[in-house]
Design a binder for these strands. Structure first.
Length: 280
DNA sequence: GTCCAGGCCCTCA
DNA sequence: TGAGGGCATGGA
């Protein structure tokens, strides 16, 4: 396949932090700020030779899709203006100030909705290393095997709904009780009964309600799909980590009016910060 | 062996 | 409307 290189100037963007932020499960690390990144049926190699440069090797003609994926067209300058204003108001020791400082460089990616829906369905009552392993195994088992020029080497595309419906497609992947959910989701998408694109362009309340009709998708997973896969940037998934933070730092409820329009980004930042702080 | 993991579903009040 | 138990699997 014919590859091409693009070099983009970036700000508030850090591949390592994004990779560790829990929104992606398939990035393969080659070195510091250097990754093989699959997206649906595409793949690219991303590297930051320094903090303000993103260098991307991708297939010819795919640059626009990757800029969208990396949220490079989003108004992060504007988000940071608001974030900094609140940090100044709160003072340097405040929890949110510390969190956004530590998480500076995280963006909310625009991931494909189907892949995101399956991945976060798998994520329930599960841990991140296992989620990564299961998603990788699913891809190896039912995705297309691709061999690309180095440093990509071989990789697997994310399986289509039809591929996940094949007999025994999910046997021995380690999905456990979630297997029936994934099968049903694949069937609904395959048949057109569940139209992820249509959901992604409807309003937030309707989109969430429709997702929650699917067995295995509750409030939290729906919000993850909306945030990471459909880019409802104000969606605020509350998992066990976020719940703990809300109880400890915010008397149980996050001040959603502060960062109206991009609460999901803040959620991602405090998730990252909390996990980083409690490591070690 | 026990506990836990980016929850959800079902039941019962 | 909310609390509580069960759930597949595998790593700590």
């Amino acid at each position: 396949m014919s590859m091409e290189r693009h070099t983009w100037r970036v700000d508030h963007f850090d591949l390592d932090k994004i990779a560790e932020s829990g929104q992606v499960f398939r990035w393969e690390r080659l070195g510091p700020r250097h990754y093989v990144i699959p997206m649906g049926s595409l793949v690219a190699v991303a590297r930051q030779p320094d903090a303000e440069v993103l260098e991307l090797d991708c297939t010819a003609g795919a640059a626009g899709a990757w800029r969208e994926y990396f949220a490079l067209n989003d108004d992060y300058a504007g988000y940071w203006q608001t974030i900094n204003a609140w940090a100044k108001y709160d003072g340097p020791d405040a929890y949110l100030t510390r969190a956004v400082r530590a998480a500076d460089g995280i963006v909310v990616l625009h991931q494909p909705d189907w892949e995101t829906a399956v991945s976060f369905m798998v994520s329930q009552n599960n841990n991140i290393p296992r989620i990564r392993g299961t998603v990788k195994e699913l891809s190896k088992r039912q995705g297309r095997h691709i061999t690309a020029p180095p440093p990509v080497g071989e990789y697997w595309t994310f399986p289509s709904p039809a591929a996940l419906m094949e007999p025994d497609a999910l046997q021995g992947v380690g999905l456990g009780y979630r297997e029936k959910y994934v099968t049903a989701l694949a069937g609904a998408v395959r048949s057109g009964g569940l139209d992820l694109f249509a959901i992604s362009v409807s309003d937030y309340a309707e989109a969430k309600a429709e997702l929650m009709e699917v067995p295995g998708i509750g409030e939290k997973v729906a919000n993850c799909i909306l945030l990471y896969g459909m880019h409802f940037l104000d969606a605020f998934p509350v998992d066990t980590w976020i719940h703990r933070i809300l109880e400890r730092e915010f008397s149980g409820a996050f001040p959603l009016e502060r960062y109206r329009g991009f609460n999901g980004l803040i959620q991602q930042m405090i998730f990252y910060y909390e996990r980083k702080e409690t490591k070690r």
